[in-house]
Write a protein that binds this DNA or RNA. Structure first.
Lengths: 232, 232
DNA sequence: GACATTAGTAGCAATATGTGAATAATTCGC
DNA sequence: GCGAATTATTCACATATTGCTACTAATGTC
């Protein structure tokens, strides 16, 4: 089988392709998911905005390149970074044949002083971006939604301490639907994911809310049955 | 921000890297997950087995390259193929700087007539493989387990018609634990994923089992609450 | 102080899940 | 042919989880 792919001993030189690392940086702002875009440096570019990207430098891994690109665009490292995947086909602003996309999450409130070359856009009101970036953004959002219950994604979109209403708001944002307050809190406490601090926040009107922090505890091995969540 | 990455108008040529596409082919056999490996064509290779891989040819996408490699190794296309992700670092048998891994699922029973250069190994009894392949196999298995309840993975590991005991066996294999028969079936029927055929299979001794086929129906919009499954 | 507003809980009905055991349809040994 | 062994399928019931309405609490506004 392999023989058909390459000669038995001396293998052909692996073909070289142009490769980029592209970073999707997301945060929550004003009850909306927002994405960081940078202005295209090329005035002839078809689209004026694109996600931060660069090539991998010598000695860098894909991850360290993604971290560098994110830090450079934000002025600070994101709270979490995760690979989305690799894609080719579709036009890339630097004409990279293959792009490896990373998703970076930024805590709400730490929106960098968006300089003239970077700006945050609500994900449902994006300006035109290059086709490959459009597709990577879609993939990143899908990843975000599919991992929300397995990974501490929601907590990375919040500052270290937060109110339970803020947390619920993030979940509603990511899931795209309203959640019931009592049920949400009951499930949250049952999961031992947060612990209360002794601080309270007054948000203008209404009763002050207690602040919590993310502090997951080992959970007693609750062996649940299978959940058939297959949509297709 | 972008300015620091590249000059305003004329961008630097995107750096070229050697790239491979590596395919993890899995099936279920004798109550075990098994993986297809090909014999290394290089007698000086440190490891004698590796997962099928090749470079991307001109005009191919990553996906079509993965399909070609899988078809070439199996003699037939896999039932499903999905990207695992991209990795660098760690030694690759062809010294590719970056590898994009794909997971391919093969229906049980269609084990190709494993020629002299390819063979199936139980995933928990693999011979030594190159470090990058070892790592990709781990990632693929993790992906498999994390998607089992969202994607029809289990069904792709089975022939078009199957008994519910076979299906449960696959779930137990992937989840690594026993499931209770009655609960499993109740949840399965509630999810409207299978429909009975009018065939029965006699498996030697015991009562014959009815054969079912995968036939997911649109499910009444069961808006469930949040499940906090975060381990950390 | 009455009211609007947001936070946090109680309690109960409706569902879902865990489990043991009953019932069904075969083959095997004799 | 008959009973034991084996595998499939379902029932029934105890427990656990979830959905929801309504209630209490603590604040700012007027």
């Amino acid at each position: 089988m392999r023989d058909r792919l390459s000669p038995p001993v001396a293998r052909p030189a692996t073909r070289r392709v142009t490769l980029s690392v592209d970073v999707i940086l997301l945060t929550s702002h004003a009850r909306r998911l927002t994405l960081l875009l940078t202005r295209s440096p090329d005035p002839r570019a078809k689209e004026r905005w694109e996600t931060p990207w660069d090539t991998v430098r010598v000695g860098e891994t894909l991850e360290s390149a993604a971290e560098r690109i994110a830090r450079s665009a934000l002025g600070a490292p994101p709270a979490m970074i995760e690979q989305v995947g690799a894609v080719g086909g579709k036009r890339h602003p630097g004409d990279a044949e293959v792009s490896v996309a990373f998703l970076g999450l930024v805590a709400a409130g730490s929106l960098a002083p968006t300089g003239g070359d970077t700006a945050w856009f609500p994900v449902d009101e994006l300006p035109p971006v290059p086709p490959r970036h459009r597709s990577l953004i879609e993939s990143a959002l899908q990843l975000l939604r599919s991992r929300i219950d397995q990974s501490p994604i929601a907590f990375r979109l919040l500052p270290p301490t937060f109110t339970l209403s803020q947390l619920q708001e993030i979940y509603e944002l990511l899931l795209g639907r309203r959640l019931h307050k009592a049920s949400f809190r009951r499930a949250l406490h049952a999961a031992w994911l947060v612990e209360p601090t002794d601080e309270w926040r007054t948000e203008g009107r209404g009763r002050p809310a207690q602040l919590f922090r993310f502090a997951p505890r080992k959970r007693r091995g609750g062996r649940r049955g299978v959940r058939f969540g297959i949509a297709e």
